[in-house]
Amino acid sequence: MAINRKQFLEIAVTGGMGAFLGGAALLPGRWREKGVSLTSVHRRSLVMGSIISFQVIAESEEEGYEAIRRAEQAFRTLEKTFSMYDSDSEMARLTRQAGREAMTVTEESRRLLHFAKEVHQASEGRFDITIEPAMRRWGFRETPSEPVKRPGDRELRKIERLIGSEKIELEGGRVMLAEAGMAIDTGGIAGGYALDKALEVMKQTDVAAGFINFSGDIHCFGKPLDQQKWTVHLLNPETKEPVREPVELVNEALSTSGAYQNRRYDESDHSWGHLLLPDRAKPAEPVGSVTAVHASAMVADAWSTAAYLGAAAPEEVRTIVLTDRG
């Protein structure tokens, strides 16, 4: 499952990224009491169609790499469930069953779909994982270099009838998409769900801290070796320069939505981004980007998309809006 919608966001993380630094006063209590030194372990992997960067603070490289291995496995397990590109995934099979009959799904899928419906309602429809038919028609499942014929209003009205998370029927362990032709786009939520799971697995190992960057979605716990917080510099997607104030994270997740790199073009070279208004089945670019910060990566992931498309995020979700547009 390629999650490309935030690839325009380049992340520069300062502090503790290169070499081991002593920083004894900042070490978590139980390691400081043991009188041990901690080291920073780094690794980059290709998982779920995207590059993931890991940083783990641990007593040894062996323990650090083991925590990363388990986190990678969590991503790969969920990819088999949520992938839009694997015909054997649970979401792909659910799409094939649309309008026909309910399907038994895993607990992971039930949780993701329940939460997606909740955000759909809370965002007054701005967040909608049934947007997939429109994503396909606007060319986002095709080769980016190929021009796309823009859909007309009559075609868009037909697509609109296939969109609406209220048409996802959940009953016990069974799920059904109410109308034939409906399809699920997990790109605005599955990455965050996977980050939450990966961090949960990492916390179960004997490491002091962890930081994961998944194509611009970030989750972390504990502290880096040389400072109290994880510092993330968001770049302005137009100028590629860092914004004035960095974002500091403490046991939090960060997700950014914007429409810069993942774009499609028509024969006249007019382009559009991949964030679509569900009620119109059309691309929208109201602002440069919206970043959401929350203790849960899934919450941040969903609300960065919803807020970008105009929804008011709940109070517990911190948002950062960049107004420049390309």
Rank of each mutant, 00 (worst) to 15 (best):
E248C: 11
S215M: 11
G216K: 02
F214C: 06
G172H: 08
A198S: 01
S215Y: 08
P237C: 07
A178D: 14
N262P: 00
Y265R: 14
A208T: 05
H219A: 15
G172N: 10
T239C: 01
K203C: 02
R263V: 03
R174Q: 15
P242A: 04
L177D: 11
D217K: 09
E169A: 13
E179W: 09
K223G: 04
A183W: 03
E245N: 11
L249F: 01
Q261H: 05
Q227A: 08
T186R: 12
E171T: 12
E200K: 14
V250I: 14
G191Y: 01
L199H: 00
E241F: 06
G188E: 08
F221M: 01
H233V: 04
C220H: 03
L177Y: 10
E238Y: 05
D185L: 13
F211K: 00
A259N: 13
D206Q: 09
A209V: 07
I189C: 13
A178R: 15
A209T: 04
K229A: 14
S215T: 11
V232F: 00
D206Y: 04
M176S: 15
L225M: 15
T205F: 06
P237W: 05
D196I: 05
H219Q: 12
A259Y: 10
V175K: 08
V247I: 08
M176H: 09
G216C: 05
G191L: 02
I212V: 12
G187V: 00
A178F: 08
D226R: 00
E245W: 05
R244F: 09
Y193V: 12
